[in-house]
Simulated scan of single mutants.
Amino acid sequence: MTESILAITGPTSGIGRAAVKELVNDFDRILLLARNMEKAAYLKQELLELNPEANLGIIECDLSVLDSVKQAAENIKNKVNHIDCLVNNAGIVSTTHKKSADGYELMMATNYIGPFFLTHELLPLVMKSEQKQVVVVTSGAYKFAPMKKPFFKPKRFNAISGYGRSKLGILYLAQELHEFYSRKGLRTTAVHPGAVSTNLGKDNVSRKVADAIFALLDPFFVSVEEGSQSVIKAVRQPEKYAGFYSNQGEIAAVKQYGSDFKMRREFIDATLEELDLKAL
């Protein structure tokens, strides 16, 4: 039996932090992909207190910067020859229009483009493993707005639709992985864990706008611990959730724009072209 390895993005706060603390005993090795190295080091110490025998690696990775994602993937390839479970958990909500270092709308860059590229780079390692699992954290917010052009650099910004489209994109990624790799043994799950209110960025925006966004997202709010359970369940029960959308731990039908196959194909193809990739 080979060493079991988990790789997870966004582990230093919120749902990711709660999930990895519970999963620390489930894998022989855990790779923590984090943007903030100080927070990652602190998390590592916390995890070692929970399991002194844990084999933990910290990989610097800013998902909003493609060069950082590329370097992180290379670092991982130099450390391991397989990954049993890749959890694309990291994500942001931005209430103001910001651009990534590569010129993309920041939420689309962080929540979709970066994870897409990371998955592309690490998928060969996942397919070499015994478990062969990818879990992506999406959101019920995918129903907020249809995907539309320009996909990655919108001319107008709306926080709600921008966030929704970034989460619709990562849902499309999960669907794409299942369609093309499930027959090769890959188990993919898209998870809506519920939104954690403390993750909502209200900085640099008027109180009126922030409160309006908060009110619209309020039906999705759950505690960090509640949200993490949907990720943990997917990781621990890959067969049960393979190929499905998990709504807070319950298998649910994908609605509205999430079932638009024609748009998914167009969007995925546009992503491949944008990243100069031949295939996922």
Score class of each variant (00 low, 15 high):
L118F: 07
I15F: 08
S166I: 02
K21W: 04
G201E: 14
C61T: 13
G201H: 13
I30G: 02
N247T: 04
E226D: 15
F244N: 11
E53L: 11
S94G: 05
A40P: 08
K70Y: 06
A41M: 08
P238Q: 01
E74C: 02
P150S: 05
I58E: 10
I268A: 13
T271H: 12
Y241S: 12
Q256L: 13
K262T: 14
K155N: 15
A215N: 13
S206Q: 12
A141P: 06
V80K: 09
P219I: 00
M108N: 03
I30H: 02
I92H: 05
V69C: 11
A109M: 12
G164S: 10
G57S: 06
L171P: 10
K70D: 09
M37E: 12
Y257V: 01
V24N: 08
F157E: 00
G14T: 05
F144G: 02
S228W: 02
T138V: 11
Y42V: 14
M263D: 00
M37Q: 15
L56Q: 07
E3I: 02
E105R: 13
M127P: 11
K128D: 03
A210S: 15
L106V: 14
K128I: 08
L216F: 01
D62V: 14
P154T: 12
D102K: 13
R187M: 14
Q229M: 13
